[in-house]
């Protein structure tokens, strides 16, 4: 991971990372178009999965739960892959991370589902849902990142994976 990447907290855009700060002034139309197109694709995937999975309005919101956990696994994978590369493609993070995965996962839907459950007298289900999503999502990001970090060789050829291959 490069020095600049180590300062990153926000995978969408982190102004402590010089490349993130520079990307919008340098390529405003390309960055916003990549985020927009990725967001549309991610939201379509979420809507498709939600329509395909059966959901009891009075029960645990499995479709949103599945979307958010799988999206969290994938952001871990993506950020580990990008961190290994010395010069990742400029639009990779805006398109895949901010756009596709940001559009796929949702905080608002999960919040209104919990509110609805609580309003319908299912406060225990609402609380279980919020805690399970929070804990499950963190585990998913961690597993995605750690597994990818172990399995991906560094692009520069100095990573543990490359050394192992060279013996």
């Amino acid at each position: 991971m490069s020095g600049a990447e180590q300062r990153r907290v926000d995978p969408d855009v982190d102004l402590a990372v010089p490349a993130d700060r520079a990307e919008l002034p340098a390529h405003p139309a390309a960055v916003l178009a990549a985020v927009s197109a990725g967001g549309a694709l991610g939201a379509l995937a979420r809507a498709g999965l939600s329509a395909a999975l059966p959901h009891d309005p009075a029960g645990f919101p499995w479709p949103t739960f599945a979307v958010n956990l799988s999206g969290c696994l994938l952001i871990g994978v993506l950020m580990a892959v990008l961190a290994k590369r010395a010069n990742p493609p400029v639009l990779a993070r805006p398109f895949l991370g901010v756009g596709v995965l940001g559009g796929y996962t949702t905080f608002a839907t999960h919040a209104v589902e919990a509110r609805q459950l609580a309003a319908d007298g299912a406060a225990a289900t609402a609380l279980t849902y919020l805690v399970a999503t929070l804990v499950g999502a963190l585990l998913a990001v961690w597993v995605g990142y750690a597994a990818t970090d172990r399995l991906t060789p560094s692009a520069g050829g100095t990573g543990a994976g490359q050394r192992a291959v060279r013996g």
Partner: peptide, 21 residues
Amino acid sequence: GTGLCGALTTYSTASYETLRL
């Protein structure tokens, strides 16, 4: 709702941030 608010908000970014911290 599904389009605008769904994409305006994100769970993946928030979780990654918590893990990074």
